[in-house]
Computed example of a mutant assay.
Amino acid sequence: MTAAGTDTTADALRFGYGTNGFANHRLDDALAVIADLGYSGVALTLDHDHLDPFAPGLAVRVDAVARRLADLGLGLVIETGARFLLDPWHKHAPTLLHDDPTLRIEFLRRAVAVGADLGAEAVSFWAGVRPDTVTPAVAWDRLVAGCAAVVEAAEAVGVTLGFEPEPGMLVEDIADWRRLHAALGSPARLGITLDIGHCRCLEPRPVPDCVRDVAAHLVNVQIDDMRRGVHEHLEFGAGEIDFPPVLAALREIGYRGLVAVELPRHSHAAPTVAAHSLEFLRTAAAADTARPARCSASTGAPSGVRAPDDDRRVE
């Protein structure tokens, strides 16, 4: 095992791992494994067993996590994609698009506060899927209003936000993010979270070009493999992405944030998957980036994205 963050090369990428891929571990144990494997940071999803922001004694628990992160030498981003934290019956509900988004806004405000206390590099969030009963115009207005409240909270405590385009959600690609950013008045505190797999899934441009396109606003990177038109987070090598050019693009733009592995369905084998993932990324980062990309070219955005959960297509 190597100590966390051992690569001191000036332009070395900082790899992290998401705790949503360690759902069967206690948070302390997950952080220890991630550090012992040699990761530089962690993407911490606030959830029932991983620093629940609604459970009693939050301040004491946040202090304990801060000490643990410092002891392990781990950087941090906060993720807010917990599936059933707010509603035990409905995944991700309520979102900013629902009739009553109050609980979601409160959750995001708490995430911002936790991020401030932990010195998080970014707090990441997304729009949500538009409910069938809500028109696109109403959903958009709700999204802008909700995001404005979160931006206000972040500005008050000096926290950077990363808004993530997510396939099938109201904001699903980079173009949608730009529209939202403009609608909010282009706040300096609102950057973009870029999921590399999502770029392969539905963006019209090659993945390295997506990285370059958002360079000025990139505050958080999630990384995983994926196939065109299918929103399924895959282990590296199981999808279609050629990673050396992607990692080269991140170095080229001078990105210094975490590049965190996002494999939320692999908790059953978390230590093994995390070890293999870091080995893959280090090998890809050291590879000859001048060689032709294997599958980086795109042929236009797909007409719909299939979600493996229920084999439906999200338009």
Results as ranks from 00 to 15, higher is better:
residue 170 L to V: 01
residue 72 L to Q: 02
residue 288 D to L: 08
residue 258 L to A: 08
residue 208 P to F: 05
residue 225 D to S: 08
residue 279 E to T: 14
residue 88 P to S: 06
residue 235 E to W: 03
residue 113 A to F: 03
residue 64 A to M: 08
residue 293 A to D: 15
residue 64 A to C: 08
residue 6 T to D: 10
residue 3 A to Y: 06
residue 123 V to S: 00
residue 212 R to K: 07
residue 225 D to K: 03
residue 154 A to P: 12
residue 170 L to N: 01
residue 211 V to M: 11
residue 103 L to P: 07
residue 81 G to Q: 06
residue 15 F to Q: 01
residue 292 P to K: 04
residue 314 V to P: 01
residue 136 P to H: 10
residue 215 A to E: 13
residue 100 D to V: 05
residue 11 D to Y: 02
residue 10 A to C: 03
residue 17 Y to F: 15
residue 147 C to H: 00
residue 264 P to N: 03
residue 89 W to P: 00
residue 211 V to L: 13
residue 181 H to Q: 02
residue 199 C to R: 00
residue 36 D to V: 02
residue 79 E to M: 14
residue 183 A to Q: 10
residue 264 P to T: 04
residue 157 V to L: 07
residue 252 E to W: 08
residue 59 A to M: 09
residue 214 V to Y: 02
residue 308 P to F: 10
residue 277 S to F: 02
residue 194 L to I: 09
residue 292 P to F: 04
residue 2 T to K: 15
residue 243 F to D: 03
residue 306 R to Y: 11
residue 43 A to F: 08
residue 259 V to S: 03
residue 63 D to V: 07
residue 244 P to G: 06
residue 303 S to W: 12
residue 235 E to C: 14
residue 140 W to T: 01
residue 6 T to Q: 10
residue 275 A to S: 11
residue 267 S to I: 03
residue 108 L to D: 03
residue 298 S to H: 15
residue 132 D to E: 14
residue 37 L to D: 02
residue 204 P to L: 08
residue 187 P to M: 12
residue 115 G to Q: 03
residue 134 V to H: 02
residue 140 W to K: 00
residue 157 V to C: 15
residue 227 R to I: 01
residue 218 L to M: 05
residue 115 G to V: 07
residue 59 A to R: 14
residue 49 D to V: 09
residue 210 C to H: 01
residue 54 F to L: 11
residue 311 D to N: 13
residue 93 A to Y: 06
residue 310 D to S: 13
residue 118 L to E: 04
residue 74 L to Q: 00
residue 71 D to P: 07
residue 245 P to L: 11
residue 87 D to K: 05
residue 12 A to T: 01
residue 115 G to C: 08
residue 275 A to L: 10
residue 182 A to F: 10
residue 255 Y to W: 12
residue 49 D to F: 12
residue 234 L to S: 03
residue 157 V to S: 11
residue 120 A to K: 11
residue 253 I to V: 13
residue 176 D to A: 14
residue 171 V to D: 00
residue 159 V to G: 04
residue 23 A to T: 10
residue 32 A to M: 06
residue 294 R to W: 14
residue 172 E to F: 06
residue 246 V to M: 10
residue 118 L to N: 05
residue 239 G to D: 11
residue 221 V to S: 06
residue 176 D to E: 10
residue 212 R to Q: 08
residue 162 G to N: 00
residue 237 G to L: 04
residue 9 T to Y: 05
residue 301 A to R: 14
residue 95 T to D: 01
residue 235 E to P: 05
residue 288 D to G: 07
residue 223 I to A: 02
residue 251 R to S: 09
residue 238 A to V: 13
residue 131 P to Y: 11
residue 169 M to H: 14
residue 248 A to Q: 09
residue 28 D to L: 10
residue 280 F to S: 05
residue 262 E to I: 04
